[in-house]
């Protein structure tokens, strides 16, 4: 196993152009966002164990690089659709952490007025069309968003993030094919965390790379290290540029790993503790990116470490916001079904 420190100079060389393109401020913000996502997820789990959360949750700890790399490759006005393990995507998109926490805890001030919860957080005003409780549910919708963009002749793109499990849903096939034949500006980002609940990827696929399926749709397919934030950024940026040029969709597979169970009641009998530890110790996306930025001289070690405290402060304030927020009034129960 190659260690993080020996990787750094090689990575800095490899991502030289991306580092230049993003610039120090955005790179630092990306690392900060990864810390904030992790802190959000850790607090979410804690709130759950304290009995402060009514429903379930799907934590993305370990997958922060995919969310942050992808979101940073897009622009204001672009669209996002994501999946049930979606807190990180939403935070990386720039959606307000206070309103996210309020939604997670079922408050009226949440993004969905407490009607959606963890699995349905959407920030419609920012073209974040929401997380989805149905595996691959957002994928056919993304094709429709892409169709709308093409018909309205804007330079927007739509990114849909789905898991390895979703890659085996039938609707995904229809949606990818339609996006391809019509050259729609859609980025299909498969966040492969290697387990569809308990089903390991090798048991669910007879191919090594999910991105190989792109060939069947006549579109570019690429597999990247989903724990390397700059690799994700680079691939999504390339796909976005292609989409904006009117050349159509791309399929990107971002290989990552979730540290926590599928949801709240997962005993994780399908994998070993050693496997999880290996990913946590040797391939952690935050440690990696922090080391890269310090090695490259973009942050000091103290600054990189301090971001964790900044993140905890952000999350403390979001919990305070949600604690001070009203719960929805039952009198409003029937609102919002019809426009």
């Amino acid at each position: 196993m190659t260690t993080n420190s020996t990787l750094q100079p090689e990575l800095i060389q490899r991502f030289h152009n991306v580092i230049e393109e993003l610039g120090p401020e955005q790179l630092k913000q990306m690392l900060q966002d990864m810390h904030t996502i992790r802190a959000f997820e850790e607090r979410a789990e804690q709130l759950y164990s304290l009995g402060k959360v009514h429903g379930t949750m799907h934590l993305s700890i370990g997958q922060e690089a995919t969310a942050v790399g992808a979101a940073n490759a897009l622009q204001d006005g672009d669209y996002l659709l994501n999946h049930h393990r979606g807190h990180g995507h939403c935070l990386a998109w720039g959606s307000d952490v206070n309103r996210m926490m309020a939604e997670f805890t079922g408050k009226e001030t949440g993004f969905c007025r407490g009607r959606g919860g963890s699995m349905h957080i959407a920030d419609v005003d920012a073209n974040n069309l929401g997380a989805n409780g149905i595996v691959a549910g957002g994928v056919p919708i993304s094709t429709g968003v892409g169709l709308s963009i093409k018909m309205r002749k804007t330079s927007q793109v739509c990114m849909v993030i789905f898991g390895d499990g979703a890659a085996n849903e039938g609707a995904l096939h229809e949606a990818l094919n339609m996006a391809s034949i019509w050259d729609l500006p859609v980025i299909f980002l498969c966040e492969n965390n290697q387990y569809a609940m308990s089903m390991p990827m090798p048991k669910a696929f007879n191919i090594e790379k999910i991105s190989d399926r792109a060939a069947g749709y006549g579109i570019p397919g690429e597999t990247v290290d989903g724990n390397e934030v700059l690799a994700v950024y680079e691939a999504v940026k390339k796909a976005a540029d292609r989409a904006r040029r009117g050349e159509g969709p791309s399929l990107i597979e971002s290989v990552t790993y979730r540290y926590k169970g599928h949801s709240k009641s997962d005993k994780q009998a399908y994998r070993t503790r050693d496997e999880v530890n290996d990913w946590m110790e040797n391939r952690d996306p935050i440690k990696r990116f922090g080391a890269l930025l310090t090695t490259a001289g973009i942050t000091s070690e103290a600054e990189a470490t301090g971001m964790r405290d900044v993140a905890l402060g952000i999350i403390d304030r979001s919990v305070e916001f949600s604690d001070n927020s009203p719960t929805p009034d039952v009198a409003g129960l029937m609102e919002g079904v019809y426009a």
Partner: peptide, 8 residues
């Protein structure tokens, strides 16, 4: 629409 709190 309902899931998003009456937004979309």
């Amino acid at each position: 629409r309902f899931m998003f709190g009456g937004k979309a």
